[in-house]
Amino acid sequence: MAAADNKIDALGQFELHPVLGPLGAQLHLSQSVLYMLLSSVLILLFLYLGMRPRAVVPGRFQAAAEIAYEFIYDMASDQIGHDGKRFFPFVFTLFFFILVGNYVGLIPGSFTYTSHIAVTAALALMVFFLALIVALVSQGMKFFGHFMPEGAPIAMAPLLVPIEILTFLSRPVSLSIRLFANMVAGHVMFEMFAAFTIMLGGLHLIGPVLGVAPLIVNMALMALELLVGALQAYVFAILTCIYLREATAH
């Protein structure tokens, strides 16, 4: 598909198409939405089935669900501080939505919704505005004082205040670009090496032998992407915690 007539179409995999036949076309239901729904169902199933036994000594599945819960709970309460418990559900949802999205996207033939900047930017803006509202509620007008670093001479204010504002505004941008770029880069590399295999396969006698090399690279890439997928979800969640801690502090 990708390597037809010797062209590599590395970005075609990110295009959105209507799914589920005429009904999907009517609803403008793209794969992105479909996989978001699928991921949400997977997360809910994991937690529901994991916690259903309610055993005092958990089985493997229940232990996995408990570890998932405690991992984010510890992160939220350690990073945010005494208000951490209030934001735990939000951070938990965010982390697992991104993590499962990244991992479901690694299944060949599926779609990675975290590879669209529209999705990651929406998530990042949600975090940004939540932190902003929390900061305004808990700090009031003192919040704006943070844009002038303490102890700096007042004459420096025209330079320092714009810089501080830019630092603040760059947060949602860096948050969304980081996740989106990592996912796109990973999937483009998959596509490239897979296309190399197909192209080499067409080369006379030696081709099929050489074609194994990109396949091996793709296997290594899969391991890397499993790491990156978890790491990006972790970074997104921990930055959310850090921003919320700053918002609730003082």
Partner: peptide, 19 residues
Amino acid sequence: SSLGLVMRVGVELVAAVVV
């Protein structure tokens, strides 16, 4: 956490310029 840090640094530098 240090791997996470490495992931953050590069994008952090670019994002502010973009904004």
